[in-house]
Amino acid sequence: MTSRIILLVEDNPSDEALTLRAFTKSGIRNEVVVTRDGAEALDYVFCTGAFADRNILDMPAVVLMDLNLPKLSGLEALKRIRDNPATKSLPVVILTSSDEEEDRLKGYEFGANSFVRKPVEFDRFVAAVQQLGLYWLILNEPSPARNGTSLPHET
């Protein structure tokens, strides 16, 4: 069974707190796992390191990936996720402060499903997070080919 876990990859504690607050305010009650750099995010996704005990079949519903991260950048982490057949269709949304064309270009080239710029104004940030949650947690149907098996999922 897939849970509807949200994997948030964010190194800035303030942004993490604001994003969690935005989820709560939007009425999104799903479990949010926070990893603070690209390497930790990959550990979670591939069940390695600190997440070795995690069930690999239990993939997050969506990964919200910041770009500018310590150790392994968001783009590098995304590339590793896409390179692995088990995770190549895992929904990854880039959620970043940047709206530089180069970032958007690379983000999509590396296989991001979406690119969302975090607005400075909190109300707009909440609205953005709400729409993301609505789309990726409720509206979007994940790929059945994921993990090589067709898995039923909660609705």
């Binding site: 800035n12 604001l18 402060s97 400075v120 940030f125």
Partner: peptide, 19 residues
């Protein structure tokens, strides 16, 4: 790039936590 990314984050924090 740094201006775009790094200067905006603290502003978001100021605005968000003020609210």
């Amino acid at each position: 790039y740094s201006v775009a990314h790094d200067l905006r984050a603290p502003l978001r924090s100021i605005d968000g936590f003020s609210q």
